[in-house]
Amino acid sequence: MVHKSLEQACLIMDRSGVDTRKCMMCGKCSATCPAFDEMDYHPHQFVKMVTEGDIESLLSSKSLWKCLSCFACVERCPRGVEPANVVEALRVTLLRRQGENYITADDIPGLLDDKLPQQAIVSAFRKYKK
């Protein structure tokens, strides 16, 4: 059973400024998407999933990080739905989750790595904990 939350759906619509109910399922976003084959859920699917409130599946989907933010879907959507902005809202939602993706000061020495930008560690440290 997939967890469905219309509250969550409204949150994503608010954050992205997108009304996903305007979608008419033409598939133009998926037809346009250069990263289509990399994704588990495709652009037209995640628009539909937001409408249906199936946010949890999306938050754990790798599509979220495969989207190139090229905005071709935003440019070409005939309904002004802006799927890339939905992706951005989902990313932000995941990153802002209370207590998640947070590292304590003690974790930092173990993570230090020449290749990891220092800014990434600092920002993870500053994330919302309470």
Binding site: K28, C29, T32
Partner: peptide, 24 residues
Amino acid sequence: QVGKVYEKDGHLVVQAVDLIANKQ
């Protein structure tokens, strides 16, 4: 829908989606 049409090696290419098969 068709996402874009472009020319490649002298012929036209259509990039589209098949929503029933969920394939590009």
